[in-house]
Design a protein around this nucleic acid. Structure first.
Lengths: 116, 116
DNA sequence: GTATGTATTACGACTGTCGTAGTAATAAAA
DNA sequence: TTTTATTACTACGACAGTCGTAATACATAC
């Protein structure tokens, strides 16, 4: 289980990535992250929902209510065009971050596949 | 230039990595990071010095005063045994973080060198 | 004596995460 | 039919790390 301190700053990217596949809602996204990371990363609910609010305020996602109901009413979110651009930027930033942090890792595997 | 929001959580690792090579002080570390990342990452002075304070409080580094004086007096820091262990842990965490975040990157290069 | 480079400290603001708790709706079990 | 479990979300306050801005302090060169 990874502390979110390390992932902090990429939670947005994770959410947008999943919304890129299909519109979804908090609870499902939460389960999906758990699943895809084999429980190695669990995004806290408060973190997740506050990220949704923030992303919507910024215009990266938009919301609508779902009609299915196996419990409480769902708020679905879908990624906007602006959100797609933001996601791409975040991906590039992530790529750059990896290169930088790898420079400060001894016994680093970056030395094995150093591209240049 | 990378925003520290992405690196946040690994600033400690960066500092410890450099201190692993030799004892050093804020100003030098700052220049060294700039240099090694070709100015792509610049750790803000306030961030850096407050990280030093925090790391010392946690027992990961210890400080002493330098005698050389080409300006204001320097506070040198050196990594402790506890700090070395912490650095290793951070490296492992970084490794895990990369694997996780990569799963949420489309057009991801992780698909090129996926180890397993 | 003032500007420049070296080196550190102070302080308050902001943002994202987290713990804890509560609300709300449905279905299944007792 | 009350309880319990699962689904789904919200509220609130605390905390940590980063950042902007500014000040301080010492030394050297102009």
């Amino acid at each position: 289980m990874i502390s979110s301190d390390g992932i902090r700053g990429y939670n947005d990217m994770i959410l947008l990535c999943l919304l890129l596949e299909k519109p979804s809602y908090g609870y499902e996204i939460s389960r999906e992250i758990k699943l895809r990371t084999a429980e190695r990363y669990i995004m806290k609910e408060t973190t997740l929902y506050s990220a949704f609010t923030r992303l919507e305020k910024s215009g990266y996602i938009s919301s609508f209510y779902g009609s299915e109901t196996n419990g409480r009413r769902r708020t679905y979110y879908q990624i906007t065009e602006k959100g797609k651009v933001f996601y791409q930027e975040k991906c590039e930033e992530w790529h750059a971050t990896k290169e930088i942090v790898d420079k400060f890792m001894k016994n680093g595997e970056e030395s094995l596949w150093k591209p240049s």
